[in-house]
Design a protein around this nucleic acid. Structure first.
Length: 276
DNA sequence: AACCAGGGAAGAT
DNA sequence: ATCTTCCATGGT
């Protein structure tokens, strides 16, 4: 898509159907964002971007323009992806409904912690738990927001701390996983095949198949995964009839291959928004 | 295999 | 208005 990096603090993006701020931030992949009429803002690790939607362009005011161009996946052609996956009516309906979704290149560590919290949970509650964690031990950014805490800052928290932030029975999972992460190089997972990276993630307490798929997709850029949650189950039943969660995941990845992650986001957002 | 854990929203009665 | 279900993982 057409965009221009103007110095370190500004990206000017052409208004086009394949990038929409509300759809990209609201499709369930990211928790630290806010939306408002004509724009929004997103925090990623220790970076921040503010989106302003103008007549025929979107201004992205941020602390690292190159980082956010990559974060927003601006160099990938989503029009081609939508064309390739829209063979079925259910998918073309979903891409037509929200063609402006892009998959954000999020920080791996942040997605591990965030998606453990997301397990069996609702989005507003996930957001408030993460917010309290950031306020407790995240560094204060120049913008006044709290950065996502570092691993060493988070290991200083106790299980009771996570409890008091509302993590519930996920508190011990967080505590144990953070201890394990001190001896794991998450960035090394990028160069591993998807299945091998998944095995490392599945060894972490609180990480099951669904959470692992989310980390692989949103935090490691692996697009050949299809996170199956309650919404995707509904869609799957409409499309193919009932099956076990495991079978759904396998069949969907077999169908969409490297484009699975994109299809998942289009279908998830469509089903959720139209069921409100 | 079936059920519970913490919590709050959404659905059912 | 109150009762039940749901959510994804791990432990019993």
């Amino acid at each position: 898509m057409n965009y221009e990096i103007c110095g370190n603090n500004l990206i000017v993006a052409e208004k086009t159907r394949s990038f929409n701020v509300a759809q990209t931030l609201g499709c369930g992949q990211v928790f630290r964002y806010r939306l408002w009429q004509g724009g929004g803002e997103v925090l990623s690790l220790f970076h921040k971007a503010v989106f302003e939607e103008k007549q025929d362009e979107i201004k992205i005011i941020c602390d690292d323009a190159k980082y956010f161009a990559k974060y927003l996946d601006f160099d990938r052609n989503y029009d081609i992806i939508m064309e390739k996956v829209s063979d079925k009516a259910s998918v073309s309906t979903a891409t037509a409904f929200a063609p402006g979704i892009r998959i954000l290149a999020q920080d791996t560590f942040e997605t591990v912690v965030s998606f453990i919290i997301s397990a069996n949970n609702r989005i507003p509650r996930i957001q408030s738990i993460i917010e309290r964690i950031c306020a407790a031990c995240g560094e204060k950014m120049p913008s006044g927001d709290f950065a996502f805490p570092t691993l060493s800052a988070l290991t200083s928290l106790s299980e009771q701390d996570f409890q008091s932030f509302g993590a519930g029975y996920r508190a011990p999972y967080l505590k144990k996983t953070l201890a394990l992460l001190c001896n794991i190089d998450l960035s090394a997972l990028r160069s591993l095949p998807t299945e091998q990276a998944a095995d490392v993630l599945l060894a972490l307490p609180g990480v099951g198949p669904k959470v692992a798929d989310c980390i692989l997709l949103f935090g490691l850029g692996k697009t050949d995964v299809f996170p199956v949650d309650t919404w995707i189950k509904k869609v799957y039943r409409d499309m193919f009839g009932d099956a076990t969660t495991k079978a759904m995941r396998k069949n969907l990845v077999a169908e969409y291959g490297e484009l699975s992650g994109f299809v998942q986001q289009y279908l998830f957002y469509y089903k959720r928004e139209t069921n409100k």
